[in-house]
Design a protein around this nucleic acid. Structure first.
Lengths: 151, 151
DNA sequence: CTGTTATAGTTGCAATTGCAACTATCACTC
DNA sequence: GAGTGATAGTTGCAATTGCAACTATAACAG
């Protein structure tokens, strides 16, 4: 009764564990690189990046939350910090009295630009270093497939 | 001057982002599955698993830390919780007066066994569901390569 | 031995996260 | 337009994490 197993195959288990570990270590490396350069954590970058895609456009808070995968209360307080640093501006939304719209400030744009070289270099080293171009493509495809499955 | 770029290629960046996102979502799914079954978080499983590989053998605290990728103070307190629940036993090490040795209890073994079906089913669904056998092999290989690079 | 440095682990404190409860507005139905 | 349920966001509180300082032992050089 092959297909009825509820446990994963050995290959899947091994891949899962390697995925878990490497992700943990990769993330730690990136965070360490940012910290070493006296820069804020990755979560700040993510939010700033989303906002800087179209710097003029206001984003609703929940839109940011969807893109960055942050729970709303969590995002609420992250934005508190970002706003306190003058990196974003949060205003009441006139078309929806419950909500806020958020825009990035000049200072926020600048910070994101300062973060990117450090972040980018880390990605380059950690991904392009050990992997061939074919592997990178393959990694991208596989991760996309995993993501599809999570919708 | 192609090779001198400090930014990652578009493919590498895309793969990185997909990796980041999928890992985040996968982990959330697994944790949610455990919680839904009234089971403790994944970190507990990891520690219990390492200890249950040879249930008779005592492990030094730092050995657990190495295998589970947990900072020492973090592990120290996680073991506090596990010990408080009677899942592990922590004793002074006689061959090294600074250290502790940790063993898993019957109750700890039983908990790990109760966790595995839930965890395993989640892995099966999340990894084997969307990926072909070849992709799973490929994923394992790629993650290994990334890990190698992190030594 | 004695002094120095490294290792194992714990603890206090601040920052972050997760959860549940709460407020306010919106959208929809009757 | 009053009532109901959903949505956007905030807040309080407890649990977890990260960091730095601390204790105690070990290991090693002279």
């Amino acid at each position: 009764m092959e297909g009825m197993e509820k446990s994963p195959s050995a290959a899947a288990e091994q891949a899962w564990i390697a995925l878990l570990r490497s992700q943990q270590l990769l993330l730690a490396r990136v965070e360490a690189a940012l910290k070493a350069a006296d820069l804020p954590p990755l979560a700040w970058y993510d939010v700033l990046l989303e906002l800087s895609r179209e710097p003029e456009t206001e984003l609703r808070q929940f839109e940011i939350g969807e893109r960055v995968l942050l729970s709303k209360h969590n995002l609420s307080r992250l934005l508190d910090r970002l706003a306190a640093e003058g990196l974003v501006k949060r205003q009441a939304c006139d078309s929806d009295g419950r909500g806020n719209v958020v825009t990035i400030t000049k200072k926020g744009l600048q910070l994101r630009e300062r973060m990117w070289p450090v972040y980018g270099a880390a990605i380059k080293e950690l991904i392009e270093g050990p992997l061939s171009a074919a592997q990178i493509r393959s990694l991208g495809d596989i991760m996309q497939a995993l993501l599809q499955n999570l919708r």
